[in-house]
Nucleic acid binder design. Sequence first.
DNA 1: ACCTCAAACATTTTT
DNA 2: TGTTTGAGGT
Length: 752
Amino acid sequence: MQDYLEKLNPEQRQAVEHITGPLMVIAGAGSGKTRVLTYRIIHLINNNVSPFSILALTFTNKAAKEMRNRIDSIVGKNISRDLWMGTFHSIFSRILRMEAHKLNYPTNFTIYDTDDAKSLIRSIIKELNLDKDIYKVSIIINRISALKNNFITHDQYSNHQELVQTDKIAKRTEFQRIYAMYSQRCLKASAMDFDDLLLNTYKLLNNFPDALLKYQSKFKYILIDEYQDTNHVQYLIIKKLAALHENICIVGDDAQSIYSFRGAKIQNILNFKSDYPDFKSYKLEQNYRSTNTIVETANSLIKHNENQIPKEVWTENEKGEKIILCKCGSDNDEGRLVANTIFEIKMQDQAYPKDFAILYRTNAQSRALEEALRKQNIPYKIYGGLSFYQRKEIKDILSYCRLTINPNDEEALKRVINYPGRGIGNTTMQKLLVTANENNISIWEVMNNLNNYKHNINNGTSKKLVEFVLLIRNYQAQLENKDAYFLAEHIAKSSGVFGDLYNDKSPEGVSRFENIQELLNGIKDFCENTEVNSLADYMKDVALLTNQDNEKQEDFNKVTLMTIHAAKGLEFPYVFVVGLEQNLFPSMMSGESQEDLEEERRLFYVAITRAEKRLFLSFATNRFKWGQYIDCEPSRFLSELNTQYISKTEIISKQKNKFYNNKKQVLKNKFEKKNNTFKLPPNLKKLSTVTKNIKHSDLSKIQNGMKVLHSKFGNGKILEISGDEANKKATIFFENVGQKQLLLKFAKLEII
DNA sequence: ACCTCAAACATTTTT
DNA sequence: TGTTTGAGGT
């Protein structure tokens, strides 16, 4: 039992045995981070710490599950199941359900996923008669999410002038109204979105001292994985929870922080020192995962980032083979290169499909790769894209279930009230919505008491509405005494969804029907493996599940295709990183700023360090994008890699991308391979000036022709000053990004 | 109220 | 390029 300590190196062992007090573990890629976390939990248990008082937070369900399994195998299931271990979102939703009444939510509140949230925002924009081109749903939702993650509620929004100004400039003057309405509608629907789960947990701990004390005393030991990717609210919650015992252990790697777009702050790691001055820290720097070549290549890349905690990742592993960098003519060539290489290595090294991963920056890149793999008959699986639970037919069934548990759930209601068709169309829904808003109640309440409210819905339609209400009531009556599987199956059949799909014999219809059966099987599984098996119990966490959480057995031995973000925490013997082109990786959307660039570089770092044995990098000079062919240049990151570990190859296909249709021709058309024939662009580091610490000059004296420095856009020249004194605008030409108009009041410029 | 077709639109990453 | 939205007809 004690021999687990023997499996650790000195640093790992120190981190495991250091039980009390604040502890920071900086764990380089492949340094056995998960091992330290699991052994530390086991060590706590062996030192008579009750599993109930251990809180372990991870970033994904998968990570939590994996860790739980490892702990199971050492201390047994009956101990490990009492651990509070899971993602931030799942643990906090568990707490919130117990304390919901304090925040005016019912225990069975709904969790809105991103699609629900989007649909709600879309309908608010419509109700307010706003221009949907100015108020883009994706922008609004990201903005609301960012505000929530920084703990700025809709009524606090106006206290932040810079936010108000940004929206003013973008002509989104009604943003606050949308935000406010969104929050109210969520509350009225008894629904929380992902961000609310965090925000409301913080509110709970902040506004209810008894609740705070309860959880502070309960969680005597707190462990947090992937700490570099926690956002501000998460940071605040953890700080509060840990305040009593200060037995907090954070594990992370600043070089792998890749979620700042979602509000993650590397700063949180640095804050740790000031929040817990008597903290202890260990660095895990020995890599057990990759060959020396891969480790050194990754190091050569990441050293281009200025903003990082110094560390030296090293390995005792063998040197390994050189990294292959391949130039391809097109995205299709790239796909075929990858497929051919996999085919060859499988033969040479006796490798299995599951040993390979293909990583890319954006989900859209998977198409060419899939096609090539299919042609080579290589089995593959794709993560990302549409999750199982986001599929239409699944959401339909789940929406009926949601509605049964929480009839105020507006998004679920809108989804199923007329599916299958019941003759309740848009017009009726609009009328209901207006009545609901006028009386500040939910649509369900209006439908429930149609006679009590003023509306002009005719008798025929009213009757249909009443029928629908009765249908849902019938389901509700069975919530208490029937298990989840029975009720879900009953719902699928009696709602008409099952029949509707059964009659659809098109391939899509058949697959939808099968998906629903798969869902029902999943629910059956759930019922058989738990004591609490009501529909409400099943529905609790469904919104928090993702694709990766229900991997099918038959998918086990397949090549993995995924985005680099999704690959975090995973490892594969053979890794292909594709699409290494400017404007794709680094992404076009990541601005010109040093910070954005460094995040993209960390992302590439994560990609490289997934590989155990061999790494293949590739880029295309021509790529199909937005319905047309675009010329591409190799990624600037490629020229940052130490060339001594890289072997360059070029693949020339005689065919043009456009005429790539003739199968036979393609198969016969063997690639021509050339070595070391192409040059990468010069190292671009100098081009992007390091502009993090610009001085904010007094801009009252600004004049035409002055040269200025902007933190994001770099060097520029003032072309014109316009506007009245209070809202002076400057038109500036920036060398790197072209002409921009900035409001001087808020622009951070240095006059040079 | 529902169906059909054409035009517009969209691609960063996710719990 | 594939998907979604909206107009117009039934």
